[in-house]
């Protein structure tokens, strides 16, 4: 596709600017802002997992750990050490990188279900530790996270409406990162490792190094969502490691169709709108969320978007056919 760069910029910039006014267009009530901030946070969380599942073709079940790493680091740095959001973001990213490096090192040789199994176990162990370790507040969690304030810029956000610009900016950065990743050398290498490892090796791509690099890119994205979530909720407890976040992320990544740039965002929005405005109670919502996940994988290989092939062109996507099945590995 040949397109004028200027036109391309406008095509991307216009929705980005318009997106900021979505909560206002929806009435601008407190509940709308709260939902929009959460959609942005959870979408960022899902984008971290998206590049692992959609591009690398592995299922990491430890992404709740990165989310929790961001949230807990922020809680500790801001409530106990009195640091501001910029330092707590830096801290969150560093901690997530450290965890990802450790996890990446351990799982470097593992593939497929053994990889998923170990990452799942990591998530369960992390939940046990968070519930029992008094340093992390134990089962009470950590309270007293101060409001989001950057004194240098004179910016302070005391409610969801004031936090929205931050959440939206974070979302744009995450989308931009995923989009640049897919155009980058690393993104192409990841896709090659995913689809044909032998070809990747003969083309001079080191699969293990690629996997580790993608992992290290993915973790800070999800952790930065945890960072903002800590400020949004003002307290953090072990429930950030619950299966809910894992299922939410996975559903958001696959429901619209894999490797769609705006897929995870639309998926999260769909799920949260149901939960916040059309809820049937926690347990029925669980059944709905799980069923959406099952149905989209078992019956809609191209996601919801695959059902409406004609509007596909609205979503920028890569030239790789999204319906392609993952080849069997030997």
């Amino acid at each position: 596709m040949i397109m004028n760069t200027g036109l391309k910029t406008i095509l991307f910039a216009a929705p980005a600017v318009l997106g900021f006014f979505v909560p206002m267009a929806l009435g601008g009530s407190g509940a709308v802002y709260a939902a929009c901030v959460l959609v942005a946070i959870f979408a960022v969380m899902s984008y971290g997992l998206d590049i692992i599942v959609s591009d690398l073709g592995e299922v990491s079940l430890a992404h709740t750990v990165f989310f929790a790493a961001g949230a807990y680091t922020t809680a500790l740095l801001s409530a106990s050490a009195g640091m501001g959001p910029i330092l707590s973001l830096a801290g969150s990213i560093l901690v997530a990188l450290a965890v990802a490096a450790l996890l990446g090192f351990v799982t470097l040789q593992l593939r497929e279900f053994v990889f998923s199994l170990v990452t799942y176990a990591v998530a369960v162990v992390a939940a046990t530790i968070a519930q029992n370790w008094s340093f992390l507040g134990g089962s009470d969690g950590l309270r007293g996270i101060p409001p989001f304030e950057i004194s240098l810029l004179g910016f302070s956000a005391r409610n969801d409406q004031e936090l929205w610009p931050v959440a939206y900016l974070l979302l744009l950065v995450a989308i931009y990162m995923v989009s640049s990743f897919r155009r980058s050398k690393l993104g192409k290498a990841a896709m090659m490792v995913h689809l044909n490892q032998r070809l990747a090796v003969t083309s001079g791509v080191d699969p293990q190094q690629t996997r580790l690099q993608v992992f290290l890119l993915s973790a800070p994205i999800t952790a930065s969502a945890g960072w903002l979530y800590a400020y949004q909720r003002a307290y953090i407890s072990a429930d950030v490691l619950e299966a809910y976040f894992l299922i939410l992320m996975l559903t958001a990544v696959v429901v619209m169709g894999r490797r769609l740039l705006l897929g995870p965002l639309a998926g999260v929005a769909l799920i949260l709108v149901q939960e916040k405005f059309f809820s049937f109670g926690g347990y029925v919502d669980k059944i709905i969320l799980g069923s959406v996940l099952i149905v989209s994988l078992a019956f809609l290989p191209n996601g919801i978007i695959g059902l409406f092939a004609s509007i596909r062109t609205l979503f920028p996507r890569r030239t790789m056919p999204i319906g392609k099945t993952i080849p069997e590995r030997s």
Binding site: A243, L289, L297
Partner: peptide
């Protein structure tokens, strides 16, 4: 990969 995620979904349901 899909089987893993689907069975997770079943567990959640």
């Amino acid at each position: 990969v899909s089987i893993m995620i689907v069975t997770l979904g079943f567990g959640y349901v």
